[in-house]
Amino acid sequence: MATIFHLALASDWAAAEASGAYTTSTLGRTLAEEGFIHASRADQWTAVRERFYGDVSEPLVLLQIDTDLLDVPVVEEPAVPGGAETFPHIYGRLPAAAVVKAIPLTTEAAPPAAAAEPVPPPSATAVPTPAQPGESFSRVYFREMFFNIALLCIVLVLGTIGGLVADGIGGIVGVALGGAIAVLLYRRRHSGPAAA
């Protein structure tokens, strides 16, 4: 499942729920006028809100969209011709059924820390990530990457020590022991709420 986001007026979303499809491109523009519906990735929607919706006093919702449930193309394109940053654009009506969550947003200028990064609903195949509320994807990614590198270092250090102590067989035993410790630490870290 790929997830993208769209900021919407709560009234526009309510009308879409009633009709079954959402057709607002962006604030004050329809799909027919724009040709596509503007969307954002998780790391982009807060900046879009600040830039384009900062003065909006009506209630807003953040639509969490599962792109696998769309029957129209989603194209990554620059926001302006020649721009470096790309945004997902939905080329057609957004079925209400493709919106897996509508997150109400407060009308204050900046989103509260807990709403800064919406958390997708858990799935049966998802591995729990020890993320804090409001933590960015890149921070979680790098923390997990460094944790995995640390596990690899444990394997290499124990393999090297084993190799120095007892030549070839000691190195194999050291790598096996390091691998077992690394697997144990990995499982303990990702065992979910029960470990906390």
Rank of each mutant, 00 (worst) to 15 (best):
G168Y: 10
A15N: 12
N148K: 08
R29I: 14
E50Y: 14
T160I: 14
P130K: 03
E117A: 02
L69D: 02
D66S: 09
G170I: 12
P104R: 04
V72W: 08
N148T: 13
A176P: 15
E117G: 05
A150Y: 15
G192R: 05
L62Y: 08
S191P: 00
R49Q: 01
Q132H: 07
V140Q: 14
E108W: 00
F147A: 06
G134Q: 02
P73G: 05
I154D: 15
A18H: 05
I149L: 15
A42W: 08
D167G: 05
L152A: 11
A166Y: 10
P81Y: 09
P111F: 12
I149D: 13
H190E: 13
P95N: 06
E135M: 07
V155Q: 01
I181E: 13
L69N: 07
F52T: 05
G170H: 14
I4S: 12
D68T: 13
P81R: 08
P120W: 04
V157Q: 06
I154Y: 04
A195I: 04
A47D: 06
F87E: 14
D68W: 01
P122Q: 08
A84H: 03
L158C: 10
T107F: 09
L184G: 08
G28L: 02
D43W: 09
A16G: 01
C153N: 12
M145C: 11
H6F: 09
L177P: 01
P122W: 11
